[in-house]
């Protein structure tokens, strides 16, 4: 659902998608250090494969996106991760389209960055809450980030589809409705993985 195909959106939308994508890519890659590359590759492999895991739900089939997970794990580097994953998904699985890689990266990558911000702000909070220790907070905000990123992506797609004449509310309800299991599963998945890394290898989680 989040991979928009060729020939649906207007050229100005595709163009602005590419402009935003190139700008964020340039920024993210300038921030990249050599130590980040292996982790970036592994997460990219996960995001690349995730779209093959389908869940049949109601009338549509939905697949994993894992953009929130990428955001939490990689920070700003989630953007190049998603760009590479989407490019490979197009060339190897014919998911989405060639001209839409720019806008699709915006749709999936920007929510990943948002989920990273939420995660970073959430785990950095020094307020004493019931979820006191850092690991619990990481699990909680990882889960929030994982679920929210998918929802945001769907909202982006629904907004863009208005320009093609689809009814926003109808599309948004349909798209979000069919993705409820994905949102739930990705939230749980991200929370659990972040909890696991917080215990086993805290360095792997992006903190900056």
């Amino acid at each position: 659902m989040v991979h928009i195909s060729d020939g649906i959106l207007a050229p100005w939308l595709l163009g602005s998608g590419w402009v935003i994508t190139v700008a964020i890519l340039a920024y993210a890659l300038s921030k990249m250090k050599i130590d980040d590359v292996p982790k970036l590759s592994v997460i990219t492999a996960a995001v690349f494969v995730a779209s093959l895991i389908h869940i049949q739900f109601g009338p549509t089939s939905v697949h994993f996106i894992l953009n929130g997970f990428a955001g939490v794990m990689l920070g700003v580097l989630a953007y190049p991760c998603i760009f590479i994953a989407l490019t490979m998904q197009f060339f190897l699985f014919q998911h989405g389209g060639l001209t839409t890689i720019g806008i699709n990266t915006v749709n999936i990558g920007v929510p990943a960055l948002v989920s990273y911000l939420i995660f970073r702000t959430g785990t950095g909070l020094s307020i004493r809450t019931k979820v006191g220790n850092t690991k619990h907070r990481m699990v909680l905000f990882g889960a929030i980030g994982g679920g929210l990123a998918v929802m945001l992506s769907l909202a982006f797609v629904a907004v863009e589809l208005i320009t093609t004449g689809e009814q926003f509310l109808e599309t948004a309800v349909l798209v979000v409705g069919t993705h409820i299991p994905i949102i739930a599963v990705e939230a749980i998945f991200t929370g659990v993985i972040v909890g696991f890394f917080a215990t086993v290898a805290p360095d792997l989680i992006h903190k900056r």
Binding site: M32, K33, I34, V37, P38, L40, S41, T44, A45, F48, V49, L52, I84, M88, L92, F93
Partner: peptide
């Protein structure tokens, strides 16, 4: 079914991209 060939090809590309990125950074 699962496009296994493409899957492995994808991993191969990723390794290549990672290698090039590390080379450039190094």
């Amino acid at each position: 079914g699962l496009p296994l060939m493409q899957l492995f090809a994808g991993f191969g590309y990723l390794l290549g991209i990672a290698g090039i990125a590390m080379l450039l950074k190094a």
